[in-house]
């Protein structure tokens, strides 16, 4: 709740409207839609695109792959973090791997991955590699930050491991996991679409962006960019809601 009210305080409607007006005036002053398209033209073009089957097919294509890679990273990241939180050796073993994944630029990954997998599955691997270290690092941090006094309580009352994980670890790790999801999901869409622009898998959002660029269809570039932002935002919110609902269900006794 605090975060939401802070966000509301940070982003005011009047400020958004001012920037849209600046954009509109700038575009009109320049008078060349190829260089700077107006927000009205973007809106009109977006309205046209959403009425085509190709638009939804491209959104579905990228959503399935980027979302799939992200989901896979969440599962693997949490499982690895649980092992690393329990066994120091696993933590030591995984640490250099995560460091390398975090340090390698997305462009290098894209080129390497294109050698190994077909371009249509490129964004699955890229979003997986981008989200994995974020989830892993945060969840390990959450596990290691679990309140030792509560864990002692669980030990004295001899709570079974399943109940300790479900009612103690989950709630202690949840804030870390939510932060990781929020960061990771934003990154995976940016990196996933960038990978699609480089790898050009047929039918992806990245391909559409690339086509718009080579035909100098600036309204399309902006319309697809708005689409990516909206889909990414909706994806993040939906996933966070699922997580919250899942945690509420788990904590119900």
């Amino acid at each position: 709740m605090k975060n939401r009210s802070e966000k509301q305080k940070q982003i005011r409607l009047w400020a958004v409207l001012v920037w849209l007006a600046v954009w509109q005036v700038g575009s009109m002053a320049l008078g060349q839609e190829v260089l700077l398209v107006s927000p009205v033209s973007v809106l009109v073009r977006l309205g046209e695109l959403v009425r085509t089957a190709g638009f939804w097919s491209s959104v579905g294509f990228s959503l399935l792959r980027i979302g799939g890679g992200c989901f896979l990273a969440i599962v693997v990241g949490v499982a690895l973090a649980a092992l690393a939180g329990r066994f120091t050796r696993v933590r030591e073993l995984v640490a250099p791997l995560m460091l390398v994944i975090k340090a390698i630029p997305v462009a290098s990954f894209v080129i390497l991955v294109l050698v190994w997998v077909p371009s249509r599955n490129l964004s699955v691997v890229i979003s997986f590699l981008i989200v994995l270290p974020v989830i892993y690092t945060n969840v390990v941090g959450g596990i290691r930050a679990a309140d030792p006094q509560i864990l002692e309580m669980a030990r004295v009352f001899r709570l079974p491991a399943g109940r300790t994980v479900r009612y103690i670890y989950v709630s202690q790790v949840l804030p870390f996991f939510r932060t990781a999801l929020s960061v990771g999901l934003g990154l995976c869409w940016k990196a996933g679409v960038a990978a699609e622009v480089i790898g050009l898998p047929k039918g992806s959002i990245g391909m559409k962006l690339h086509e718009a660029k080579i035909y100098l269809e600036t309204p399309d570039v902006f319309a697809w960019t708005v689409t990516i932002v909206v889909v990414s935002y909706a994806f993040e919110k939906a996933l966070l809601r699922c997580v919250d609902a899942g945690v509420r269900h788990m904590e119900k006794m």
Partner: peptide, 21 residues
């Protein structure tokens, strides 16, 4: 069963859930 110096409750759970834990 124990009562510690600190309360050591799961803060996000209700009183009933803390006991049922």
């Amino acid at each position: 069963g124990a009562v510690f110096q600190e309360d050591r409750l799961c803060e996000n759970l209700s009183a009933v859930s803390n006991i049922r834990l």
